[in-house]
Write a protein that binds this DNA or RNA. Sequence first.
DNA 1: ATGGTGGCGCGGCCA
Length: 254
Amino acid sequence: MKIATWNINSIKVRLPQILQWLSEHQPDILALQETKTIDENFPKAAIEAVGYQVIFAGQKSYNGVAVITRHLPQNVITDIPDLLDPQRRILVASVADYRIINLYVPNGESLLSEKYTYKLSWLAKVKNYLQQQLKEHPHVVMLGDFNIAPETIDVHDPAIWSDGVLVSEPERAVFKEFLSLGLNDCFRLFEKSSGHFSWWDYRAASFRRNLGLRIDHILASESIAKKCVSCIIDKNPRKNEQPSDHAPVLAEFL
DNA sequence: ATGGTGGCGCGGCCA
């Protein structure tokens, strides 16, 4: 079972690259974030034409999540308890034996911003939902753009990235709580060193200089983390013309 | 230190 996540920053612009990537890697599940389109305009037929099914929850211009699958997605959820949120950032579905929780976590803007308050309250509600899902489902995969770099080794320059959004202590504490509840960071099951990133700013030639952050994650509950045999960040699509600013993360489970 | 790029949609917001 191959499961992947990719913040594609517009489904419209990136569709050809997504189809190319699906063809190359043949994942069973691909979770997308920042589709940036309303459901009526989602390119469902183009994805179905290459042998996949797709579910999506979008809005005009911003946010938006989707899950592309080989198998039928069931028990689909777009809104979780106690979170009345017009922003489309969560898409949950059961696919085969797996409970898939696809997240586009708010960026937060700055520590003094209302958006940061929103980010922390949003994460608290997701944590509660995760606890409930772990009780109901034996095989949970929570993945997506977390907009959190969990550790110092997940940032290119810890001095610059010491106390802003994406690295602040409260955000990292929530990430640790996700792990404490029984999830495993699949990438760190294998790679222990620094310098591995999933996002590079479009500006200042950040990708060429590898000035990035690891903020896109695949977290798996214990029973399936044991069956994880690889987890890689595929930097190749970031080298494309008109790339997303994020790279896909791909995990394989036996 | 500031501003650098990109997407949406056509002015300004968001990342």
